[in-house]
Design a protein around this nucleic acid. Sequence first.
DNA 1: GTGAAAGCGCTAACAA
DNA 2: TTGTTAGCGCTTTCAC
Lengths: 349, 349
Amino acid sequence: MSDTVPRPTLEAVAARAGVSRATVSRVVNGGDGVREPLVERVRQAVEELGYVPNQAARSLVTKRHDAVAVVIAEPETRVFADPFFALQLRGISKELTAHDNQLVLLLTEGRDDHTRVARYLAGGHVDGALVFSLHVDDPLPELIQGAGVPTVFGGRPGWGDGTRDVVYVDSDNRGGARAAVRHLVGLGRTRVAHITGPLDQTSAADRLQGYRDVMGDADPRLVVESDFTPGGGERAMRELLDRCPEVDAVFAANDLTASGVLRVLRERGRRVPEDVAVVGFDDMVPVAEQSDPPLTTVRQDIEEMGRIMTRLLLRSLDRRNTGGAAPDPVRPAPSGEVLPTTLVRRASA
Amino acid sequence: MSDTVPRPTLEAVAARAGVSRATVSRVVNGGDGVREPLVERVRQAVEELGYVPNQAARSLVTKRHDAVAVVIAEPETRVFADPFFALQLRGISKELTAHDNQLVLLLTEGRDDHTRVARYLAGGHVDGALVFSLHVDDPLPELIQGAGVPTVFGGRPGWGDGTRDVVYVDSDNRGGARAAVRHLVGLGRTRVAHITGPLDQTSAADRLQGYRDVMGDADPRLVVESDFTPGGGERAMRELLDRCPEVDAVFAANDLTASGVLRVLRERGRRVPEDVAVVGFDDMVPVAEQSDPPLTTVRQDIEEMGRIMTRLLLRSLDRRNTGGAAPDPVRPAPSGEVLPTTLVRRASA
DNA sequence: GTGAAAGCGCTAACAA
DNA sequence: TTGTTAGCGCTTTCAC
């Protein structure tokens, strides 16, 4: 923590190399149109002085920041108990890094933070935003759109019913749920229950929808709302067993929920999958593989989802800069990209 | 994703309010020394125009960014399987937000990323850095110190043995481990084993040290190196049982490891805690409380650790700006802050 | 191909 | 108290 040594400027490098600032700038930015011997001299001066461009000065003129904000609305602790978020971030980070962009993380703990985030985005610190909008009634997305920053959403937003051009990436929650339930039905199970996630999140709602696609309006006692946590899964499973002891299969809205389900089943002496078959969702490998028995589940590639979101955003930023002002006349913007899910069979069903 | 409307500048606001740019600037930055009526007029103009200051321009002159980088060296996927990182991040984010600072996340996947990170830090994008240096031989810390950015480390760095003034925050791993082992010994256990973490991380090494503090150089067969994962815990436990079937207690280096240990114990028909008592470390509530039986473990307040690191960093940044050039003559810098750990008793020991 | 010069939007002396 | 002015370090026309 010694005192900051003033960093050398373009000026200094120019002086040392005996050229003008403009030339140094050119070399630093790729060196096109500068003759070789000069390039060499400048490079050397940069090296010797340890010159690093000042990004603030650069942004001031270029209006680019090579930075993207990741906004995570985290009203509940849950987001953190779940590796989901970490995996997304990793995918995003990789892709961003590959394109020399920085990741600015904006975590929000509640409504108070919303305006702060909106102000930040409007402040032109970043070129775009990746937003994880967890809940249906979240006002954040609206605020963000208001900030006028190109944005890609993670997960289908619960509002804006296709009217505005919202770009999002999501997993095929509904299709995955259908596959899970069909698998259970294919096993000959007739009393297939579903323990849902929080239904104000589209992912949970979509999975329920998928369940209904296959089961129709089966016995309503077979659907219990829960919250994507192991503890919630336990509570829901107890309730389910009380309500409807003859249940012979459970589709849990995610693997964490399923782990709670398995625990209760074990405690109540029901064998899995003989007495009750269980399928999860996510394929969080540490959870699904380590559970007892290992969990049959629906895999979604979360990291890839982060990557695709990022790619989508960067592409649209690029368009913007390459004067691609003319939006595709056919389709103003790709609305949503839905990634496939696959059923992974293990021992639980 | 409509086309960007050029944001209004100070100039525009000044014109609208009928004052000078300087006055607007003053109002925007707190409004000290500006008479009330003017303040009001300026506020109004800001409001009407939707003015938001351009941070790049501001940073260019103030040399402050109100942003802090969080560097996470993540050579292994493990970091993500573990809520540890998320909790830290959350503590950091809260504290940063409270002080109007932004969080720039730098994830590194390997050596290649190191220079990138160093360049970024040297580039003067951020005022300081919070670094999680996971491994003993990691070259990253050196690079970062070279970048001349004030830095606080999370976890005691494995190098720089007090010679340089390294600021870090850590949990009392050694003391916590001692407490855990003493607890087991107090239970009357005589063959207390330890399954370690990766010993190139100081946290793991310190916990082993704490174990040795109590057990001395007990039967070396009782110490098995592992990797902080449930799978690793399983493997280590199997090995342990083979090597030394009479083991009657296990101190696992973290809760994830302990969960693997419990699984193997169950599979081998050993009762916990009757036959083998088990203690973990971390008190990751979802893991420790949900395990079967619930885990006795050493609690460390991870979120608080993130908060304290941040506070430490911000304070030192402040000093720097309040012309506090003169370092404390007595102690050049607080070297390390070690947070206490506490034993949490549940059913496993 | 290279340099000179004009700003990007803001803050901070300094004057008034 | 308020306004004027001079840059912060960089990119980018525009001449040469």
